[in-house]
Design a protein around this nucleic acid. Sequence first.
DNA 1: CGTGTAAGGAATTCTGACACG
DNA 2: CGTGTAAGGAATTCTGACACG
Lengths: 99, 99
Amino acid sequence: MSTYKEKKVITIGIVSELTGLSERRIRYYEERKLIFPDRSKGGTRKYSFTDIEKLMNIANHMEDGLQTYEIRKIQEKEEKEVRDQMIRGQLNAHFNMRK
Amino acid sequence: MSTYKEKKVITIGIVSELTGLSERRIRYYEERKLIFPDRSKGGTRKYSFTDIEKLMNIANHMEDGLQTYEIRKIQEKEEKEVRDQMIRGQLNAHFNMRK
DNA sequence: CGTGTAAGGAATTCTGACACG
DNA sequence: CGTGTAAGGAATTCTGACACG
């Protein structure tokens, strides 16, 4: 939550440099619901390092010829797996408490 | 080195929001050699999360009535301590290798 | 569908200076 | 010494559209 990696503080120009993607492509992936930057009061987009990692991932999938909506489905599946893992963790913790 | 916390990617407006310091003060502390942001091609300053932590530290010292050059001396002393620690670590590693 | 580009405007940042104290 | 502010300009970002395919 409050870790550096998740903080939305990076401007699109720097994201473009870091990822090698054009600003156009970065904005387009937002339009396709693949990333969700914050906005400043003035409307400037702000990204996190996690967003940058997601973008690299997206770029790889695009190279493989996938379409944006397919990538979105992959993302959703991965997020579901994470949620399942967390539930399993909770259950384990519960049973461990009971010894 | 290549950790998120050290990467200079944050713009001064966001640093100002995160620290609560005015842009004027942030630029002034650079002038007094207390922080060292990178620059974009165009000349825009770029800060790291580490810089933000330093700025909070500086702000605290200023509240205590210290002057910028005193804060700089404190910084230098702290950096020296870190270096000494690293040397001790190296020596320990060396002797441990010899058992 | 995914991405480049030119267009016009708005938000952001920069520097050097004056002010106060 | 440390910081606010108005000033003018430059760099950065934004949106909507046209283009190609």
